[in-house]
């Protein structure tokens, strides 16, 4: 995925949110979009998936690939249970994978409940599962693991990396240590007054069966992210 010279201003806004933003991401891997609140991460994510238009510049996804965007406030309809909803929306070929994901994400005990009966962390996991079962090449996860405890979050990220190595993920998070540890490329988004507005940092990219990265590599990634932000 490549973005060239993106510029965008919300109607009636005082200034531009993005000014000639350019960056590139590999076709696959688990990457992150990092930056302070209000800097435009969600706006950029919606631009990348085509949900937001009216900007100048160009976004190209290799071979017209399919991009999806999910955020942590999304809800499942309340008229059926989580299991039934997932069965209805997941392609038939992914049934086994659905069970595996629900189990790995720690959802076995609550899949037969309705969405509004779940805790916020369980709601976010249920939402993420249904997106993972869809056909996509790029999935942007906007705070999708908010309200999930650290150990479960780690398990989920490693599972995603193990199950979908050929797909591309862009994880939006405010957790420096997490993105530095698990992500390959970290796009640090900064205010429009800074140039360049996006800085790419190499993360430790911890894999499920991989060796833990040396502490100094992790520290360096974290320092680079904080410095860039």
């Amino acid at each position: 995925m490549e973005a060239h010279q993106l510029s965008f201003r919300y109607p009636n806004a005082a200034g531009e949110l993005f000014c000639n933003v350019s960056f590139a991401l590999p076709e696959s891997g688990f990457h992150a979009l990092f930056g302070p609140s209000g800097v435009g991460k969600t706006t950029l994510a919606r631009m990348l998936t085509g949900e937001l238009r009216g900007f100048s510049g160009e976004i190209s996804l290799n071979g017209g690939r399919r991009a999806l965007y999910t955020y942590n406030l999304e809800r499942l309809p309340g008229w059926s249970t989580v299991r039934r909803h997932i069965e209805e929306t997941a392609p038939p070929a992914t049934r086994a994978q659905a069970e595996e994901l629900l189990s790995e994400f720690g959802m076995e005990g609550c899949v037969d409940a309705r969405f509004n009966r779940l805790s916020m962390g369980q709601q976010n996991r249920a939402n993420l599962v249904r997106y993972l079962l869809q056909e996509f090449d790029l999935l942007i996860m906007d705070e999708s693991l908010a309200n999930v405890d650290e150990l479960t979050r780690e398990r989920i990220i490693l599972k995603i990396k193990a199950l979908f190595p050929e797909r591309c993920f862009l994880y939006i998070s405010h957790n420096v240590a997490e993105v530095a540890r698990f992500c390959d490329r970290i796009l640090v988004l900064r205010g429009a007054s800074k140039s360049p507005q996006v800085v790419s940092v190499q993360g430790a990219d911890l894999a499920a069966q991989g060796v833990a990265p040396p502490p100094e590599r992790l520290e360096r990634a974290m320092l680079e992210i904080v410095h860039a932000a």
């Binding site: 999806l68 499942l76 309809p77 929306t89």
Partner: peptide
Amino acid sequence: DIEHFYHATRRMTWRLEVKI
């Protein structure tokens, strides 16, 4: 918050929209 998924995955129909 509910409709986004159906729009993103191109599953939205007018019946589903009214139901939601």
